[in-house]
Design a protein around this nucleic acid. Structure first.
Lengths: 139, 139
DNA sequence: AGTTCTTTTTATAACCATTCCTAATCCCTC
DNA sequence: GAGGGATTAGGAATGGTTATAAAAAGAACT
């Protein structure tokens, strides 16, 4: 069984960017991450291993990766940008109580809005209450 | 032909809030507004008539109205919250070039995600290029 | 009109996420 | 091992939003 390659680090390399220790760490934190972390979340994780990595570097790397299309920016209305390394077609569910973000398989197709609007991306966000928070408020 | 009533001001009254001159103005700016203004946009408009109205009052009023459900918060990833007095089911198209927000009739239905996720609201945002910006980049 | 109680507004400070700036550092190549 | 480009750290700056506290405005009652 061989180790799955980290697509994020691969893309950094492919695009001619340098694999620095900072980027390596950020790539590892993101790889396969299903928690939709904010920049601060990523920085916290990275800091556990390399406490000197600055938040500015984290922002810069995340923005580069998003611009390259290897990760996705995700806005759910909580004032911070979240990042999702899963760029396959899927939507998100946000719990209005605990604010956790969940992946949902349902994806909205790119609609045809006529030639006045050339659609290149569709993002659906569903709001509601997750299992845990439903149970909690029921008692 | 009689004047259409302003649903926003009506709701303020119905909920027991006072109709102050400030709220009156904000209500009038919002009523029928299709431009999806940010708090700052609203404040600018209001200031043309009453220059002493503070931005804090605008924020407080907009948040109250959104919490009451007469207007809708709208996040499109530009760092600021936009407000939409149209609360009927519809989606939004955001131009990646000029950042203008357009209404689109298409609306996504509330999906059934099983009992683990109780969905109460669905929001779809489409990104792309509007007519004007398509023309602009073509030449 | 005056008193009291509540709501609302204002102005300013505080807050937080994000970006900017600049000097220092690293890596490559000559 | 010196120059040059890319990258980083750290802190200052920015911009949207909210908190705070004091003043103003209303309403109810006398």
């Amino acid at each position: 069984m061989r180790k799955r390659e980290n697509i994020i680090l691969k893309t950094i390399k492919d695009k001619g960017l340098k694999i620095t220790p900072q980027r390596q760490l950020i790539g590892e934190v993101l790889d396969g991450n299903k928690t939709h972390p904010s920049a601060e979340d990523v920085h916290k994780k990275v800091s556990e291993i390399a406490p000197t990595v600055s938040i500015a570097t984290v922002y810069k790397t995340l923005n580069s990766l998003a611009d390259l299309g290897v990760i996705q920016r995700l806005d759910v209305g909580d004032g911070k940008t979240h990042f999702d390394p899963d760029i396959t077609a899927h939507s998100h569910f946000v719990c209005l109580n605990c604010r956790k973000i969940f992946d949902v398989a349902t994806s909205v197709p790119l609609p045809d809005l006529g030639k006045d609007f050339k659609v290149v991306r569709a993002q659906a966000v569903y709001y509601g209450y997750c299992k845990e928070c439903q149970d909690q408020t029921e008692e």
